[in-house]
Amino acid sequence: MKPPVFEYVRPASLAEALDALASSEDAKVLAGGQSLIPMMNMRLARPGLLVDINHIPELTEIHDNGDTLHLGALVRHYQLETDARIKAAFPLIPEAERLIGHPAIRTRGTIGGSLSHADPAAELPVLAMLGEWNMTVHSRDGGARTIPAEEFFMSYLMTTMGPDELLTRITVPKQLAGASHIREFAVRSGDFALAIAAAMVSLNGDGSIATVRFALGGVGDVPWRNRELESSFVGTMGSDALWRDIGRQAALAIDPVDDMHASAAHRRQLAETLLTESLHRAAEMARERSGR
């Protein structure tokens, strides 16, 4: 289990990195390497050129932009877990981070790497969908463009980024109202989850739903969210029965498949259970937060 031969470049600036990416048909970006290196060790990934972006300072920035937070693609998991600005802007990020792998993985792994890897059973893609994050990608020939999360994840381990494009910045809209919660089920602590559910709830003064969002991971090719279903609950009184109902409806709307870790039916039940719990907890926190 040793990586095959590759060309290696270590650009010092974004422009250099984009040049390198444009220069090769089979270039790969090395960020934290926590998914790429295992695949290279198993020789399942054989990039011809490895573009090491770890030494590009501008990709490490965290910037408060008022309504949004800009996170450089190289912001590492442990920073997402501990940075006060991030916690204030989107408290679900540190909460989710504690579920991601183990501390040693979080030392190296990056937000950009995790989103670009597009594992549907990973936490950050689910949060990106839930939080309606925007991905800024750059290429030498195409300049910059912004891809909303719901257009970013294409399929299992595939994004809509082109091969010469680099994810540089993630724009996270601050969570201004309500509260959010994430639950997942993994067989062992730190394992990839069999299913993930994240919910964001804000309530009106009378306890009815002002807004509700929910997203699921591990139940399909890409993280799952259905805005139409969400909006159908707006104005409904929040209650345990409602959370169960939403859980059930979401579980019916997804289309998981059997694999060796879980049957489709098991995943469906997990999604229902986790989402129900997640909504319940988010609503509870939303109520506490609104000061009653």
Partner: peptide, 29 residues
């Protein structure tokens, strides 16, 4: 395991634990 799961290769990299099997030496420059 050379896959980052077992943790036997864990070292402190700039003060934080990291998998030395998932880190290229060259990037740790």
């Amino acid at each position: 395991c050379e896959q980052g799961v077992c943790g036997a290769c864990t070292i402190l990299l700039n003060g934080r634990p990291a998998r030395s099997c998932l880190t290229l030496a060259v990037t740790a420059d």
